[in-house]
Amino acid sequence: MKAFITVMGKDKVGIIAGVATSLAECGVNILDINQTILQNTFTMIMAVEGAGSTLSFEEVQEKLAKKGSELGVEIQIRHEDIFNAMHNI
């Protein structure tokens, strides 16, 4: 299952490393990363594939949310279908 992860918050050292490590521990593969600083806010979008993970979507979500609070950023993961539905005809 393909999903998009968004990470937003105050920039600091180790955000990408932290998120990537969590995903590796979950067995979730990163397909693409796009990161920038938008109006002083760290903004990262990751396209990921979770087919190889032994964890459920909700478990990955929970783990990422926990990592987000450790790093002081907001991490959300959504199934790709919602983005396709809203932005593709």
Partner: peptide, 16 residues
């Protein structure tokens, strides 16, 4: 392919 702008738009529509 969905672009970054569209992804952020969706996230903001829901979150904010």
């Amino acid at each position: 392919m969905i672009n970054s702008h569209e992804i952020i738009e969706t996230v903001k529509m829901i979150g904010e």
